[in-house]
Write a protein that binds this DNA or RNA. Sequence first.
DNA 1: CTAATAGTGTCTCTAAGACAGTATGTT
DNA 2: AACATACTGTCTTAGAGACACTATTAG
Lengths: 272, 272
Amino acid sequence: MDSELRNKDGLTEKEFLLQYRPGDYERPSVTVDILLFTVDPELNSLKLLLIKRGNHPYMNCWALPGGFVDMDESAFTAANRELKEETGLEGIYLEQLYTYSQPGRDPRMRVISIAYIALIPMTEAVAGDDATDTEWFDISMDSDRLLLTSKEKDITIEYLLKNKTFESGMITYDNQVPQLKSKSKLAFDHNLIIYDGLMRLRNKADYTDIVFNLMGEQFTLPDLQRVYEMVLGRKLYKKNFRDKIKDKVVNTGEEGKSIKGNKMSALYSYKK
Amino acid sequence: MDSELRNKDGLTEKEFLLQYRPGDYERPSVTVDILLFTVDPELNSLKLLLIKRGNHPYMNCWALPGGFVDMDESAFTAANRELKEETGLEGIYLEQLYTYSQPGRDPRMRVISIAYIALIPMTEAVAGDDATDTEWFDISMDSDRLLLTSKEKDITIEYLLKNKTFESGMITYDNQVPQLKSKSKLAFDHNLIIYDGLMRLRNKADYTDIVFNLMGEQFTLPDLQRVYEMVLGRKLYKKNFRDKIKDKVVNTGEEGKSIKGNKMSALYSYKK
DNA sequence: CTAATAGTGTCTCTAAGACAGTATGTT
DNA sequence: AACATACTGTCTTAGAGACACTATTAG
């Protein structure tokens, strides 16, 4: 067995691990940041949960929910735990987005943040919490602007998207960089994270079933199309849309009204 | 100005940051692991660089190159630094893959690893280094097996790919999990990382120009096709392939022989 | 001459995109 | 009656997939 293999100091693995002491060097803090998306019950907008910071740095700016990764849990587990604390919900769609590690992204200390995308159905949408200044922002993005608004709190957070060319090896690719336009703003590099997350969501809407995580158990096709349109940020042709999703969906035989319409429509559910 | 904004203790941001002391809690180590791919000069195989571990844990197993992220550098910078140390090359294609954070993935201590994909042209391929037991493995993967082989060292590392269904929110998706088959094996969770990286490479070969990072300045279309086939792990129809890449490529007017052929062929270069 | 390789033509099938049209309901 | 909405038909274009074909060259 390999368990009796000895290293150059003559130690087996068990002996090695017993005597091993990690070096005494500085380590970064590691956190998870969560992009929690949903759609509002009237299907007017895609929504993103933000929390107002009550202290420096970025005091009074809006930030993504998140927290530290504990020593005995994975980042995925930490993100699920934060979601549970924030919304009370479990079993939510959760996907790792990207890891942000630029030194100085938090002026207090070195923080590396693993960002996650979470999606909850409109029916589960939890109200904003006034006490902790938690708020669902309407979020939209077109070719040159990222816009976050809260009607209740009368807040507009706006970033212009500037085209920038990146080089990597042989290839170059165009990307966009958010540039603050409004008075209110996002904390840390959360503007980047939100931009990246929305792009990921849009891309995955095209080639996966990710959008169904924003729907309830049953839905009409007009409602499903509206959700796709909010995610993608553009109108879709009804017939083409129905052709595209027809294999992902099954007619329940029941009928119901679409959220914005008053005409009966067939109710569908997601087909696994 | 916001710089005069005071928190509930009456401190400005500058004052707050001066008195701020990070909590004295345990932090994980953060490393980068690098999937360095190239193709061999005879265009027989896609290649991946691995290093043989000389100590516990996973002594004598093969591992991805990598190292710690320093406190004053981003993970991207750390990956570039490691690449420079390993190959002497700079300006290489480098893309963040995924972050692996499962507790226990390193039995010595808590290590969170940010994995990167790097691609270098075949012409730049550095030889394996006998002193440090660095070796370029031939890598291939089909629907049910991941295979890493070194002809020189007579090593075969083989993992069967077992289908597994994952649930996340409303949707389920099928994925594959590597299961050790051979006597030689990979260290830590590097089998997962390699599987994920190869899948990413294959997906991106379809909708980006990523594969050109494996080519030299000039190449014939038959050679380019062979590289695509090695990355994708399947044969392509010549005409369809040429139609697909025709806008990515420009005829230099020169002629040269393909690496495996002895007939002259038009030389192309990558069109930005 | 034969076999292999470089390169092109073309057919089918599917999916995206864009409208047009019918039926059914509300006001 | 007028309008909006649910739902379907169909045309065009583009790309993936699959072969068939010609031309060229090594041996």
